[in-house]
């Protein structure tokens, strides 16, 4: 591993900015129905915060947020969440992603569709954030496998 020295300016700026970016990413994900944004954009913001911490503090700091091994796993989990929500609709008798007929008690069909869209957006956000972070890790090469 190359000798590195952390710049205090960059570390302090990342320490201040990364939580704000993560909070804004959650806002973009969960407000995606009503305003511009959604799962992909929120996931990209989340990945930007992760990569910012890795750039400023190195992997030994960034691993506390998301480890190198968790990247592909979480990416697969996000895609599976999307697929499971889509399959839940046609396994219960509707078309793919048409959740009006899924038997969840206490929801009108329109409400159910809205909630399921939110679940899908969360799945997309997890997948995008994890995969983008994993791409950064892969580009950096394997220093010490974790």
């Amino acid at each position: 591993m190359r000798e590195t020295s952390r710049s205090l300016v960059v570390v302090l700026a990342a320490r201040g900015l990364a939580p704000v970016i993560q909070l804004f990413a959650l806002y973009v994900v969960f407000h995606g129905h009503y305003s511009p944004g959604g799962g992909f954009q929120g996931g990209v913001l989340l990945a930007a915060a992760f990569v910012l911490v890795r750039l400023a503090g190195g992997y030994e700091t960034g691993r506390h947020q998301i480890t190198r091994r968790a990247g592909p796993l979480l990416g697969a989990a996000g895609v599976l969440l999307f697929a499971a929500v889509g399959a839940a609709a046609f396994l219960t008798g509707g078309n793919l992603l048409d959740h009006g007929r899924v038997p969840v008690p206490g929801f009108a069909p329109a409400e159910l569709r809205s909630v399921m869209i939110l679940v899908i957006e969360v799945g997309v956000a997890i997948a995008v954030a994890a995969v983008l972070t994993a791409i950064y890790d892969e580009l950096l090469g394997s220093e010490d496998d974790d």
């Binding site: 710049s7 300016v9 960059v10 700026a13 201040g16 900015l17 704000v20």
Partner: peptide
């Protein structure tokens, strides 16, 4: 506020 923090830091880095 975001630009005021991030842009000088980027130039510095």
């Amino acid at each position: 506020a975001f630009v005021a923090v991030s842009s000088p830091v980027a130039a510095h880095a």
